[in-house]
Design a protein around this nucleic acid. Structure first.
Length: 534
RNA sequence: CGCGGGGUAGAGCAGUUGGCAGCUCGCCAGGCCCAUAACCUGGAGGUCGUCGGUUCAAGUCCGACCCCCGCAACCA
């Protein structure tokens, strides 16, 4: 099993502030990071900003910034602050203008150079500013890039450094073959495989410095600047000490999971591993014990979503600022919606109507109401306390009900954990709500079947068993949901009269064990967890 | 032949290895009264885009076609 979890988001361009799309990626990474921390796995969650792009220069000019660096500093601060405000639990925030990154890039470049995979060549090629990449003669249509037809292609004739990416074609294909989990979901793997097979060529990895107002200088050649993608990918290493702290690097690298949008899979799934394969030939730090390159373990590409059926677009004015949205809805509910509504890896649609729908129904009616009725009855029939429950074995519950007992709860945990390992948080949530074993739905059914409100009149002992079962189930749901709704989870624990921090310290094994809720402990008056939205 | 996603109940979507069509919301009827007008049960509502093929068996596999959407201006 893995003894650590190192998860990354892409580094975001700072030519704009965060919107709902980048929030989606970041929230998913956050939830996965929290899930692993809860399990006690040492976790590093990295996000950051990509600051060496020509796009940022243009944005700085547009914003009339005093100078580029000031603009970059301001924007990086905005990104960082947004994530902090939203409670994103990132452990590190990398900026590609930081010293540690420059050092990492330098070392990496030197390694690739030493592997004889960098060569200089003079080419006259079409460069698309929109894509930030060169187009082959096959890609150009009517003298324009098919992706950016209204942008003039730049005819670039200059001496550039090239990365011999094509030399790694076979090794990449072999990687995809032996590690089918390297790129997920499968549809993306197929896409990448096709790309490498048919269209993977050497990359131009530098440009003339005089034509650029940004970028990292090529080591040993000040007249050239490193192409933004070549430096950007290295951020995943520079943040964990590549070029600055070997020990730290060995602790965290390789990354367990790169979370990316579907638009940048070619860079992450083909160029990036090829770069590492090359550098590893000359840099022992990048090699496994058997000499093979230390590649990231997994890359998961999520889909994009539309807003009310329309694409996200500033000119249409439907771009959503997560901070604004968080004023309308509790951020935990937004997290729940994003991670539940859209099958992870697929495209989806974001709409406030659906958000309100899920908030009222899933969160309010099913989860919130269950907690509320369980606590209310316990308080009413058991003197404001958690009822005692004599049954300590796994047969807690009554015969012939929908409730699968503590064994069912164990099964639920297993199912949820499996989905988390597969990064399918949507399925994890669906299972908690609708699954076969001890789901929230079946807990509500269990109430109807056992009728504790009736049972209390003639069999207090059985009533206690039922209510204890419900309360303890709620305690466990809270921890199951903690990665997705950290604040709500703690609130549930508090409403159950427990201290979330103390509970957390006990470790996942104890948290999962049936009976964590101490009979006889005080139950405070419940507060509505999810007040209805109109 | 630019790349990609999709067409399943009124709406929004699941359907892994082909084996009796599911979920949420909404609607109708009933139950319950602990609870956030919440909860539970039952019901109506589908020729799974079209045509053809493989198969004992196809929403699922293969082929052809039709339609919608995203990338092309910001944009994960």
């Amino acid at each position: 099993m893995t003894n650590k979890f190192y998860v990354t988001t892409p580094i975001y361009y700072v030519n704009d502030k965060p919107h709902i799309g980048s929030t989606y990626t970041t929230v998913a990474a956050d939830a996965l990071a929290r899930a692993h921390r809860l399990r006690g796995v040492p976790t590093l969650f990295l996000t950051g900003t990509d600051e060496n792009s020509q796009k940022n220069v243009e944005a700085a000019q547009k914003a009339k910034a005093a100078d580029l660096q000031t603009y970059l500093d301001d924007m990086a601060a905005i990104w960082q602050k947004t994530w902090k405000t939203l409670g994103i639990s990132f452990d590190d925030f990398i900026r590609t203008t930081e010293e540690r990154h420059l050092k990492a890039v330098k070392r990496f470049w030197r390694a690739v150079e030493k592997s004889s995979d960098i060569y200089k060549d003079s080419y006259e090629r079409m460069y698309c500013v929109g894509c930030e990449e060169f187009k082959t003669q096959f890609e150009v249509k009517d003298g324009h890039c098919p992706l950016h037809p209204n942008k003039e292609l730049q005819l670039v004739k200059e001496e550039n450094y090239f990365f011999k990416a094509s030399a790694y074609k076979d090794e990449l294909l072999k990687l995809y073959h032996t590690h089918p989990e390297f790129v997920q979901p499968v549809s993306r793997m197929n896409e990448v495989r096709g790309y490498v097979k048919d269209a993977f060529e050497d990359f131009s990895i530098s440009r003339e410095a005089q034509k650029l107002s940004c970028g990292i200088p090529v080591p040993g050649d000040d007249s050239q600047r490193i192409y933004v993608w070549f430096d950007a990918l290295i951020n995943y290493m520079s943040a964990v000490g590549y070029g600055t702290d070997d020990k730290l690097f060995n602790k965290w690298w390789p990354a367990s999971l790169h979370l990316v949008g579907k638009d940048i899979i070619k860079f992450h799934c083909a160029l990036w591993p090829a770069m590492i394969m090359s550098a590893a030939k000359s840099d022992p730090l990048l090699q496994n014990e058997n000499g093979t390159p230390k590649l990231p373990e997994r890359i998961f590409a999520h889909g994009f979503f539309t807003i009310d059926g329309q694409k996200i677009s500033k000119s249409l004015g439907n771009a959503i600022d997560p901070l604004d949205l968080a004023k309308e809805y509790p951020f935990d509910a937004i997290r729940y919606f994003l991670l539940r509504e859209i099958p992870f890896g697929e495209d989806g649609d974001f709409s406030k109507t659906r958000l309100a729908d899920r908030y009222n129904s899933d969160l309010g009616n099913t989860l919130g109401n269950l907690l509320n009725r369980a606590i209310s009855m316990s308080r009413k029939y058991f003197d404001n306390k958690v009822p005692s429950c004599e049954l300590q074995d796994t047969r807690i519950g009554l015969e012939g009900t929908s409730w699968a007992g503590s064994e069912g709860m164990d099964t639920l945990w297993q199912e949820v954990d499996q989905y988390i390992d597969a990064a399918r948080l949507d399925l994890a949530l669906e299972t908690i709500w609708n699954g076969e074993n001890c789901s929230l739905i079946s807990a509500n059914k269990y109430v109807e079947e056992t009728r504790p409100f009736k049972l209390a009149k003639d069999n207090l002992e059985q009533t206690g068993i039922v209510l204890y079962t419900l309360l303890e189930a709620c305690r466990q749901y809270a921890w199951m949901l903690e990665p997705i709704m950290p604040n709500i989870a703690e609130e549930i624990i508090r409403q159950l009269g427990q201290d979330p921090k103390k509970e957390r310290k006990q470790g996942i094994k104890v948290l999962k064990t049936w009976g964590g809720l101490k009979p006889g402990s005080e139950l405070p008056e419940p507060k509505i967890l999810f007040p209805k939205l109109v």
